[in-house]
Design a protein around this nucleic acid. Structure first.
Lengths: 103, 103
DNA sequence: ATTTCATATTGACGACTTTCTATTTGATAT
DNA sequence: ATATCAAATAGAAAGTCGTCAATATGAAAT
């Protein structure tokens, strides 16, 4: 799976999408559960989830009528790492990274 | 300076902007030099540079008539680190990070 | 003072995005 | 078979974004 920095950035560049990412960051939730935690319609949530799926940032599990989504943290980490490699190659020492993480 | 994940993502979510980031990743270039390396007009480049400046992703140096821009790698690294903290908290061990960087 | 040159700003246009309502699909339950 | 429920899709309206040509700003050189 080749890293596409524009696709990744576009996927995370919307506020509603970032809220969804937060909501299902550490647990798997159905679409309706996500809708309940936001103030947008179900089709809007479905649309955003499709974009996150396209960018491979969520894990999808179908179960009966419901579909459960959870953030794919590993892939998020990989994408962030690739961004660093591409756009911060000289800031990539371990010490600097730790400093960056604490900043 | 507070990290704004939507502002950061929006700033890097355009292809032309990412090209600009690459072009002045490791050297300081005038606007015209950047224009020469792209196939967009000077006002378009100015516009994109303003967005990158707004997100604090470039360092600006004025010198006579010219303005030199270079990517602020340190801030890019910080933003990527913050993204990881926010959206990949459980993938944040050093080993996993290294794995992510090598993926 | 005037010209020249580099960059920023303005204003317009088309393309894309976000959102909604209405509808469809598809799976379980009756 | 039919009804019910969850999620996806279609289509439209409103807003945002990327781009350009034209113009303004502002600094150096003549």
């Amino acid at each position: 799976m080749k890293f596409n920095p524009v696709l990744f950035a576009k996927a995370i560049s919307d506020e509603t999408r970032q809220k969804i990412m937060n909501i299902c960051c550490c647990e798997s939730l159905s679409v309706n559960e996500i809708v309940d935690k936001l103030s947008v319609s179900q089709p809007t949530v479905s649309h955003h989830l499709a974009i996150l799926r396209e960018a491979d940032l969520v894990t999808v599990r179908e179960e009966g009528k419901q579909t459960f989504y959870s953030l794919n943290q590993e892939n998020v980490a990989i994408c962030c790492g690739q961004l660093m490699i591409k756009f911060a190659p000289e800031s990539l020492t371990t010490e600097k990274l730790i400093k960056a993480l604490n900043a």
